[in-house]
Computed example of a mutant assay.
Amino acid sequence: MNEPLDERPKPFLYVVVCAAGAAGDVGTLITMAQGRGWGVGVIATPQGLGFIDATAVEAQTGYPIRSAWRLPGEPRPLPPADAIAVAPATFNTINKWAAGVSDTLALGILCEAYGMGIPTVLLPYVNSAMAAHPAYQESLARLRGMGVMVSSRESHQPKAGGGADRFRWEEALELLGPAADARR
């Protein structure tokens, strides 16, 4: 017997949040994703935890924020990801991810997602001085080569406020559109 359409599990989106000025508004992306039928869980880098209101995010998603590996035998607190949005993404996370460094839970999930074929989008939040570094451009090229969908957002001027109010959270869902639909 087939399940009624409204009883099928929702597709699940992991939002990886880094320590960047726009991170405090991650609820915007959560609301947009939930409005499109996604379940959402947040994975924060250890430094990213200080940039978000954990209580509000957990209330909004209904799941604990993950930032550290679970111990053997502990249950998985989030359903498996159908897609991942790294937003906002920092210079450090982008370069480590592209290099295959897995020294935090967030990076471990991102490195593993490639091998699992999970559609992943990247919304960098990097100032132009850091974006000029050759390692950053090489990292973006490597991630694109791995199939990561990268935002068209331009870097912001250093020490100029960063333009967090102009961060295009919706671009994560726009980029995921076709890839996410294929996994539902």
Score class of each variant (00 low, 15 high):
31 T>N: 12
31 T>W: 01
32 M>I: 13
32 M>P: 00
33 A>Y: 09
36 R>G: 02
37 G>V: 07
37 G>F: 05
38 W>D: 10
39 G>M: 02
40 V>T: 03
40 V>Y: 04
41 G>L: 08
42 V>C: 02
43 I>T: 10
43 I>A: 10
44 A>E: 02
45 T>W: 08
45 T>G: 11
47 Q>K: 13
47 Q>R: 14
47 Q>A: 14
48 G>W: 00
50 G>L: 02
56 A>T: 14
57 V>H: 01
57 V>M: 06
58 E>K: 03
61 T>N: 01
61 T>K: 06
63 Y>N: 08
63 Y>S: 08
65 I>C: 09
66 R>L: 15
66 R>V: 13
67 S>M: 12
69 W>M: 12
69 W>I: 06
70 R>N: 10
70 R>F: 03
71 L>W: 11
73 G>V: 01
76 R>L: 12
77 P>L: 00
77 P>S: 00
78 L>K: 05
78 L>W: 08
79 P>F: 04
79 P>I: 05
81 A>E: 12
82 D>P: 07
85 A>F: 09
85 A>Q: 11
86 V>Y: 07
86 V>K: 05
88 P>D: 10
89 A>F: 02
89 A>K: 07
91 F>M: 13
91 F>H: 14
91 F>W: 13
91 F>A: 05
91 F>T: 06
92 N>I: 01
92 N>K: 09
93 T>R: 05
93 T>P: 01
93 T>W: 00
94 I>G: 00
95 N>T: 14
96 K>C: 12
98 A>E: 08
100 G>E: 04
104 T>D: 09
106 A>H: 06
107 L>H: 02
108 G>V: 10
108 G>K: 02
109 I>Q: 11
110 L>Y: 08
110 L>G: 05
113 A>Y: 01
113 A>Q: 02
114 Y>M: 12
115 G>T: 06
117 G>E: 00
117 G>A: 12
119 P>R: 02
121 V>S: 09
121 V>T: 15
122 L>S: 03
123 L>Q: 07
123 L>W: 00
124 P>M: 09
126 V>I: 14
128 S>H: 07
129 A>Y: 12
131 A>Y: 00
133 H>L: 15
134 P>A: 07
136 Y>R: 02
137 Q>Y: 01
137 Q>F: 01
138 E>F: 09
139 S>R: 08
140 L>N: 07
140 L>H: 02
141 A>Q: 12
144 R>L: 11
144 R>W: 05
146 M>Q: 14
147 G>L: 00
147 G>W: 07
147 G>A: 03
147 G>E: 08
152 S>P: 00
152 S>I: 10
152 S>F: 01
153 R>K: 14
154 E>S: 15
154 E>R: 13
156 H>W: 14
156 H>G: 03
157 Q>F: 12
157 Q>S: 15
157 Q>N: 09
159 K>Y: 12
161 G>A: 03
162 G>M: 09
164 A>H: 13
165 D>A: 14
